[in-house]
């Protein structure tokens, strides 16, 4: 009796999770795939309309300048964000890990604030700094010699199509740094203090200690951090949606926001679904890299 219980119970325990995942992930995904083979508008959604056009939505993609524009923006946004966040994460975590540092708990909590705050609040914070009419930087730019000398005296941070994506990347670095600090803090904690003490006895400088001990031992944490931040940043679009909605003239439209706008603003549901499938495939590729990396690490251990 107890033996038979043992056999089906694990499945019973896992069942609710699996059922939810199938009904709210797998099942909708199948609908997305079938819709991506249709020409279908948002209005057709209610009438179950739309007609099959095969893979035409996918074939159109390479000829769509807005698609390539979104890819380009995504690469800039993800590239700058990831490099910025991981660098800031390593620097901040090294400060926090320092033995001389007191109250590091309080500081860590301060660093977490940008990460706890919702994208909407982060968006408003930075609108207050960059917005043409409202922003602190634009209003200050007329009177401040320092800003003028630094070349920061401009009013069009969010409305100039050639810089807006860099401004948004900077804002995203600000929001995401905390996550990197957490990951790298774990990394620093894994390095035994005895190594540093030995190096100090040998007369190594602070730079040598960082370059020869910290960096090599931190490498696996930096790598995981790079991959995870890439995965997360690639799917960020709520922040951009609130600040610029992808504008001016698509200049800050990343791939996930382009997908969203194609579906809900332009109402081209068929094409948007095709885009969303491509978006998913890119995500699955990055996630697989992450899993492969993990497996190698486990085998190495």
């Amino acid at each position: 009796m107890t033996k038979r219980k043992y056999n089906y119970l694990p499945f019973l325990l896992v069942a609710p999770a699996i059922l939810m995942l199938i009904s709210i992930t797998i099942f909708p995904l199948m609908w997305s795939f079938f819709t991506s083979l249709k020409k279908m508008s948002l209005l057709d959604l209610m009438t179950h309309g739309g007609r099959y056009i095969g893979f035409k939505n996918y074939l159109y993609m390479p000829h769509d300048p807005l698609f390539w524009n979104a890819i380009k923006n995504s690469i800039i946004f993800v590239g700058i964000s990831v490099i910025g966040q991981v660098t800031m994460g390593v620097i901040l975590a090294s400060f926090l890990h320092s033995k001389l540092m007191r109250f590091s708990g309080l500081y860590r909590a301060i660093f977490l604030i940008p990460w706890i705050a919702s994208s909407v609040i982060v968006a408003y914070s930075w609108i207050y700094i960059f917005d043409t009419n409202l922003g602190f930087l634009p209003t200050l730019s007329a009177n401040s010699r320092i800003l003028q000398l630094l070349g920061l005296a401009r009013r069009d941070w969010l409305t100039n199509s050639s810089i807006v994506i860099y401004v948004l990347s900077f804002i995203n670095i600000w929001k995401g740094t905390a996550f990197s600090v957490l990951m790298e803090s774990a990394g620093f904690q894994s390095i035994p203090d005895s190594l540093y003490e030995a190096a100090e006895v040998d007369g190594a400088t602070a730079f040598e200690r960082f370059y020869l001990i910290t960096l090599p031992l931190l490498k696996p944490f930096i790598l995981i951090n790079l991959i995870m931040t890439t995965m997360i940043t690639f799917n960020v679009y709520d922040l951009i949606l609130v600040i610029t909605s992808g504008g001016p003239a698509h200049a800050s439209e990343v791939l996930s926001l382009f997908t969203y706008n194609t579906g809900f603003s332009k109402g081209e549901l068929g094409y948007a679904s095709a885009l969303s499938i491509i978006l998913l495939l890119i995500n699955l590729t990055i996630t697989s890299l992450y899993l492969i990396f993990f497996r190698q690490k486990e085998e190495a251990v």
Binding site: S32, N235, L280
Partner: peptide
């Protein structure tokens, strides 16, 4: 893990359709 990183932009249309 794979499901955990399904992008919201992919899931939003079908879930909207299903719920409506």
């Amino acid at each position: 893990i794979l499901l955990g990183f399904f992008p919201a932009a992919t899931m939003i249309f079908p879930i909207y359709k299903m719920f409506s």
